[in-house]
Design a protein around this nucleic acid. Structure first.
Length: 271
DNA sequence: AATCGGGACAACCGCCGACCA
DNA sequence: CTGGTCGGCGGTTGTCCCGAT
């Protein structure tokens, strides 16, 4: 079926967002909430396509976003979840409060992928590379494999324990990473019930995870110190997670509005 | 000081599924 | 049931920044 473009391309601006545009978008959403994205540009006075507005909001302007590099613990969690879920970045992102699918995807492609390859692990299958080479000698190189999450899932489930131990041991060798984080991840990954809930799509999400790993926050604070406090920015998120903003009304914006506007003001100062 | 290359990340594109009339 | 619309997702590209030479 023929599909209309999400917006008429005429007069639609592309490329990086300006502080002015950010301001307009934030002001609009703060006063009106997230309604039909298609209508947002017009109503907000933006010459952008609705999709672009949504992306800008969800990936950059949302006040509950954590900025900065992923912590060791988050990274390990991403690896673990990727082994189970494949390239379903949005699902993975749902387990990491304050992180977007785009951010995780980028981090995977730029950091983790290389790290795993260095460690001799195929980032697609999470199998050791040499093991693959022997078992798939007649097939193309592993890097040419298209991700097949469905098959991958079953496969990975069976090899999970092995993988986790391999990843943890090799990562600690490879980069002498914080032992605390590794231990914490061990505790996360060895928690069967937690993994089961993670595995299921209907999950209590990170709430359970963070609750069961109180040390996690303490031990990653060295890294977190660079970004706004997770508790400060995301406490409300725990209550509202997995709901659209419209689902919990506008009151929450009173708490987060200052954060969002502060972000923009900081940006203004830079210019 | 200038140039180059790679890394990091923001943003775009096209497809898909859900929903509705 | 069908066709249209919309939001969301994953892959990819573009751009900026920074360190090495």
């Amino acid at each position: 079926m023929g599909r209309q473009p999400c917006c008429d391309k005429l007069g639609v601006k592309k490329g990086p967002w300006t502080a002015e545009e950010d301001k307009k978008l934030i002001n609009f959403i703060l006063t009106n909430g997230q309604c039909c994205w298609r209508a947002v540009p017009k109503l907000a006075g933006l010459r952008r396509c609705g999709k672009s507005c949504r992306l800008r909001w969800t990936n950059y302007l949302r006040p509950d976003l954590k900025r900065g590099l992923l912590t060791q613990a988050e990274e390990q969690l991403v690896i673990d979840l990727h082994a189970r879920l494949g390239n379903r970045w949005s699902k993975i992102a749902a387990r990491l409060p304050g992180r977007t699918d785009n951010e995780i995807k980028n981090h995977w492609n730029t950091h983790i992928k290389k790290k795993l390859l260095k460690m001799g692990i195929d980032p697609v299958t999470h199998e050791p590379l040499n093991k693959q080479a022997t078992s798939q000698d007649s097939s193309p190189s592993p890097s040419e494999h298209l991700p097949q999450p469905e098959n991958n899932l079953d496969q990975v489930k069976e090899t999970d324990v092995v993988l986790n131990s391999e990843e943890n041991s090799s990562s600690s060798q490879a980069e002498n990473s914080s032992g605390d984080d590794s231990l914490l991840l061990d505790s996360i990954c060895s928690d069967d019930s937690l993994l089961n809930t993670l595995w299921l799509d209907e999950t209590p999400l990170m709430e359970a995870l963070w609750d069961t790993t109180p040390k996690l926050e303490n031990n990653t604070n060295s890294n977190m110190g660079l970004v706004p406090s997770w508790e400060d920015n995301c406490a409300w998120l725990l209550d509202c997670q997995d709901f659209g903003i419209h689902d919990f009304g506008f009151n929450c914006f009173n708490e987060i509005e200052s954060n969002a506007l502060h972000t923009i003001e900081m940006k203004d100062e830079e210019h």
